[in-house]
């Protein structure tokens, strides 16, 4: 029963999960192998959204909870690294692809 209640309480989220699984598979289904590395790198940057969680945790931490502050600070740094580094590296890879179009 617990599980059914839990599903009912999180209905929207579960719908999103199921739909996104199919979207994720569909969207990259026919990617040419030339783009595998940039695609992996781009996807790597996108899962950097986890930084939003880090910002929320950080922004809610009480100012006397040094453990939460410290860990949250570290989480924000790491999350930013993932996002910024990921997008910049992907852009650098793809820049090389574009040059030859001229």
């Amino acid at each position: 029963m617990g599980i059914i209640n839990w599903i009912a309480a999180n209905e929207q989220i579960i719908y999103i999960v199921i739909l996104m699984i199919f979207v994720g598979i569909e969207v990259i289904g026919r990617v040419p192998s030339v783009l595998h590395t940039p695609l992996m790198s781009g996807a790597n940057a996108i899962h950097g959204v986890v930084i939003i969680g880090a910002i929320i945790v950080m922004g809610k931490a009480e100012s006397d909870n040094y453990l939460a502050l410290g860990l949250g600070f570290l989480a924000v740094i790491l999350g930013t690294l993932n996002v910024v580094g990921g997008f910049v590296v992907t852009d650098r890879m793809l820049e090389m692809f574009r040059k030859k179009k001229k």
Binding site: V23, I25, V27, L39, I46, V50
Partner: peptide, 8 residues
């Protein structure tokens, strides 16, 4: 974002 990347 997470599930999208997880699936892809």
């Amino acid at each position: 974002g997470g599930i999208l990347v997880g699936a892809a």
